[in-house]
Design a protein around this nucleic acid. Structure first.
Lengths: 341, 341
DNA sequence: AGTGGTCGCTAAACTGATTTAGCAGAGCAT
DNA sequence: ATGCTCTGCTAAATCAGTTTAGCGACCACT
């Protein structure tokens, strides 16, 4: 890989100058008194030789690698991981940095290994990412340098980037109120574990709080709240069937995420009910299936790409230490209508 | 990041030996004649100081970085990218390597930049990945070192890893034949562009070929073939409606991917038809939605994680130069049944 | 006694950059 | 002629490892 690349010494020699001179010219050092002609010669030589500095050598001296570690618990599970990475990648490229990616799989041994691997490579900073928004404690080993938490917060008061789930809760509730829904709004996806343990999820509690607050202000209370052990389609399906078996049929359903909503759609379809004429549905995440459903599902988007970007910006450009809340925009789609009759 | 780490010189000093001795002991060099006691002392000193070698310094000398570049066209678009990366990450970790990830976004400028960025960092090899299985030409710049194509092939005869789409086509057709489907099998997702231009897709042609071959051998011909401009749910929906409007109703549908199948499900649901009692459906990819659908969708899985793993193995351990075909296992699910009546 | 070999270890070179310290020559004033 | 400053540039140290070449002590053999 990249054998026989020209070195700085080659450039210097061709320009008839010292390595020192070449280095200074190429790095655009101010305050040096090299002649305009020397500049010319160095640039020309570098160009002709296709010179590119050896970053290993440079970072040995400067202790900068222009490399950021992206350490996450699980890369694969959700489609969103890719967006987080892509956003980070973009912002990193703009700053001439590159991303070293590792995965801990939530395993302490792997985490230890991952941290050592990136520290050994002298990364300039670490983005510690979680795939589900939650609270976590970062390993002490990485606290020696800049760290930003992505989709997570920590008790250490480290800079962090998280989605504004509470705001999303408010948007969702407001959207329904504006359409005239009031006393027949049901919620699918309550979950004690997610709501009560910040190390499992921060989203559940925040979303619920946003919804509650908005409804309270409008003096509306929920018709029903369904608990689900997981937020998967099958649970949404079961919850929706449960709701439909009750005497009072809801006019609108809020699902805690799009997969639950997908399950709810299935139950509604089987029951011969139409979205949104019979029942409106709104949800969270903006999973790709939301746009694919018929009718398309209104939801609040998790801005993963922006979050990844923001994390890199915080890491390299510095900035606020309080958690950086990224808004979750409401995607208005076909699944919303005023209540029937 | 990682300031005041102990250096090899520190270890050597504490052990009362030279840097040379310390280096040799820690690298487990054979043929050196250092005493057992010297070994002890070095290990002890390294342990006590928590010594970890500075990989920048090491790679300056050895020209090895234990780092692999993972260059892909698009990281985010599909959920599968994560699996590809995860597999690669796993295999890399097992070999004490780490992944440097960059994205070209299909843009020549970005690609140029990405390649330079990774070559500057002296990576030991490059995995050049495509998100849709296709043929491509790799930039000359990376040919100086080991390269493996992932989910792609190239005219240069570089080692590559691709899914066995033709085999998947055979599995799919065989599964239907075994259930007794014969003259009423329809296909959704023909697409001239994907089938004819290997730079767009290799999957479409291979899948089609596998299906055709198997059906031909059984002397069965397709009832209908629907062309779709894209492989998205809406196109599957439209195609399915088209099929249902014809006099002879199919007993089974093969969709070229799961998203098309999702659309087909929607159309079937609206038409009041039941899967699999009225019509069986089978497909390709094993997108997460396949398992979420009701009834769950039979499909052939794209083994992305295994592919990522295989790519790293090929790169580091060497191996066959002919394209490495990774089998696509058939996931038998609820959407299959013998033809009605 | 001289020679050769093995043992256990080290000094120094080397990798390719950055950075510090400083040198030669010109110009100017004293 | 001397001292001073400024200009334009360079030698050498440095970063933290790996690797080459070889040194001194000890032993065996002739």
């Amino acid at each position: 890989m990249g054998r026989n690349r020209a070195t700085l010494a080659d450039v210097a020699q061709r320009a008839g100058l010292s390595k020192t001179a070449a280095s200074m010219v190429l790095n655009g050092r101010e305050g040096t008194r090299l002649s305009a002609e020397a500049h010319q010669r160095v640039f020309a030589a570098a160009e002709e030789l296709g010179y590119r500095p050896n970053l290993a050598a440079r970072s040995l001296r400067t202790r900068k690698t222009a490399t950021i570690a992206f350490v996450s618990d699980i890369v694969a599970t959700t489609r969103f991981a890719g967006d987080l990475i892509r956003g980070a990648l973009d912002a990193a490229r703009e700053r001439d940095h590159v991303l070293l990616i590792t995965e801990t799989q939530g395993d302490a041994t792997f985490e230890q290994y991952a941290i050592e691997a990136v520290l050994d490579r002298q990364v300039d900073g670490v983005i510690y990412a979680a795939m589900a928004t939650r609270r976590l404690t970062v390993p002490a080993a990485i606290l020696g340098g800049p760290v930003v938490l992505l989709n997570a917060t920590s008790p250490d008061g480290l800079p962090s980037v998280v989605p504004d789930d509470e705001g999303a809760g408010r948007s969702v509730a407001t959207a329904l109120l504006e359409l005239g829904h009031r006393d027949a709004i049901a919620l699918i996806g309550r979950n004690r574990l997610k709501e009560d343990d910040p190390e499992v999820s921060l989203a559940a509690r925040a979303r619920l709080q946003g919804i509650r607050q908005t409804l309270d202000e409008a003096e509306v209370s929920l018709l029903a709240e369904c608990f689900c052990t997981e937020w998967l389609p099958e649970h949404g399906y079961a919850a929706m069937r449960g709701l439909l078996s009750k005497p009072k049929r809801p006019s609108a359903i809020i699902c805690m995420n799009d997969r639950l909503a997908f399950g709810a759609y299935q139950a509604l379809g089987e029951a011969g009910l139409t979205v949104p004429e019979d029942i409106s549905v709104i949800s969270f995440d903006d999973d790709p299936i939301a746009a694919w459903l018929r009718p398309s599902l209104a939801t609040t988007a998790l801005p993963h790409e922006q979050m990844g970007r923001r994390a890199v910006e915080l890491l390299l450009d510095g900035g606020a230490t309080e958690p950086s809340l990224v808004p979750m925009p409401l995607r208005r789609r076909r699944s919303l209508a005023p209540p029937a009759g």
